[in-house]
Design a binder for these strands. Structure first.
Lengths: 223, 223
DNA sequence: CGAAAGTGAGTGTTCACTCACTCATTTATT
DNA sequence: AATAAATGAGTGAGTGAACACTCACTTTCG
C-alpha cells in the first residue's frame, strides 16, 4: 500500500510535548504500563513512583490526583480517536484511490489495526474506565457516535447508491465495522494464542467484504 | 421456535442450593449487583453488607475473603458456559431439526442471546476479572477452547462437506461466531442506545448467515 | 541567588478481615 | 413435659495494613 500509515500518536505527543522533564515522562510511562498490566484500582501511587524511579511526592507535583494522572495519560489518544475512526471516509478519497469495496476496506482496516496495536495499552485503560463509569461513557459516546454517523454516512450512502455495498441502515453497517474492531481489540487485549497481524488482517478484510458486499438475500426484516 | 429455551441458570442454581439462608442469598445477590454496577475493587464489603441488610461479619461467616465471595457468585455460571457454547452443535441435532444454515444459526443465536441477557451481570464480572488476571484467563481459555474446537469442529466439517458453509479453517469460523457474541455482549454491557433484542437477533443472524454461507471469492490467502 | 523540581516521612481515611458476644433453635437430660 | 446444654447463624465494634495525598525540606539548574 502506498498510503501513509497512521503513526503512534501517543509516543509522538509525548515527545512533542515540551515542558516535560524526564522524570515526569517516566511517571506517565510507568502509569500507562501499570494501569494496563494490573488495572487502575490495583495500581498504587507508590507502585507508579517505584516503577518510574521517582519519589511519590514527585507524582503529585504535576497531577493533583491519581485520576488526573490517568486523564493525562489518556488525553493524547482521546483527542485522536474520532479523527482515526472517520479518516479515509470521504467521497473524494474513496473515488480517487479505491477501485473496489475490498480495496477500500483493505486500506481502512490496515490503518485501524496499526492504530490499535500502537495504542493497545491506552485502549485497555479506556475500556476499563468506560466499563463502570456510565457518565464518562455517555460523554464519550455522545461525542463519537454523531460524528461517525455524519462523516461516514454520506460515503456509505454513495456506496449503497453505486450498488457497491449492502443496503442496510447506516447504523447497522457502522455497528458491523465497530463490532469487528472491538472483537479485534478484545482478542489482542486478552492475548489469545495463535493470532498474528497478517492473519487478523486477512480475516478482517474477508469478513467485512463478505458482509458488506450486496447479495441476493439481504432484506433485513426490521421496522 | 419449538425448541426449549435455555433458562436463567444462575437464579435456578441459587434456588436449588439447599443449605442457604435468606441472608446468605441476599449477600450473593447484593455482591453480584454491586460488582456489576461499580466493579469489584470499587465495591467494599461494607457496601455489600449494607445493600444486603446484614452485618459485615455475616459476610465473612461463609466466605473467607472478598475474592472467595466473587468466586461463589460466579461458580454457577462458570459451570454452565461450556455446555451453553457447545449445545446444539451435534450432527444429530443439526440434520434432524434444521433444514438450512440460516435455520440452524437462528436457533443457535436465539438461545445464546437469551443466556447472555439472563446472565449479563455475571458475564460483566467475569470479563472484568479476565481483563487483568492472566492466570485465570489462561485457565478458562485452556478449558473452553479445546472443548469448543472438538465439539463444534465435526459439525463444521460436515457443513463444509455439504457445501453449506464457507470453507474456512474451523478456528476462523469459531472466531467469527465468538466475535459476534462478544460484540453483542459489549453492546449490552455498555448500554448503547437504540438496541433491542429483536433487532439484535435479526442483525446477528443476517451477518452470520452472510459470512458463513459459501460464496465465490472465499479463498483466504492464509498459509 | 532564586525558582522550580524533587524528596520521603508523615497524616487521615478507608478497607478487608477478626473476634468476643447475642440469640434463636435444636438436642439431650431429668 | 420441663429444663438444661449445645449449636451455629448473626452482629458490630475493633484492628492493622494499605493507600491517596501533603508539606517542610533539599537538590538542581539557569
Amino acid at each position: 500500500m502506498s498510503r501513509p500509515r497512521i503513526r503512534d500518536y501517543f509516543q509522538q505527543d509525548l515527545d512533542q510535548n515540551q515542558n516535560i522533564t524526564p522524570k515526569q515522562r517516566a511517571i506517565l510511562q510507568a502509569s500507562l504500563d501499570l494501569f494496563a498490566e494490573k488495572g487502575f484500582d490495583q495500581t498504587s501511587t507508590s507502585d507508579i513512583a517505584q516503577r518510574a524511579g521517582v519519589a511519590e511526592g514527585t507524582v503529585y507535583r504535576r497531577y493533583k490526583t491519581k485520576a488526573a494522572l490517568r486523564d493525562a495519560v489518556l488525553a493524547p489518544i482521546a483527542a485522536k480517536i474520532v479523527p482515526i475512526l472517520a479518516s479515509d471516509f470521504s467521497e473524494d478519497e474513496l473515488h480517487r484511490r479505491y477501485p473496489s469495496l475490498q480495496a477500500f476496506l483493505t486500506a481502512v482496516v490496515n490503518d485501524r489495526m496499526q492504530f490499535v496495536q500502537n495504542n493497545l495499552k491506552e485502549l485497555k485503560v479506556i475500556f476499563e474506565m468506560a466499563a463502570f463509569d456510565a457518565t464518562r461513557r455517555e460523554r464519550i459516546l455522545s461525542q463519537i457516535a454523531p460524528q461517525m454517523v455524519q462523516q461516514v454516512g454520506s460515503v456509505l450512502d454513495q456506496l449503497k447508491a453505486d450498488q457497491l455495498m449492502v443496503d442496510w441502515p447506516n447504523d447497522l453497517i457502522i455497528q458491523t465495522l465497530l463490532s469487528q474492531v472491538f472483537g479485534y481489540i478484545a482478542r489482542l487485549m486478552m492475548e489469545l494464542p495463535g493470532t498474528s497481524f497478517d492473519r487478523e488482517q486477512t480475516y478482517l478484510i474477508a469478513v467485512l467484504t463478505k458482509v458488506l458486499t450486496p447479495g441476493e438475500n439481504d432484506q433485513l426484516e426490521i421496522d
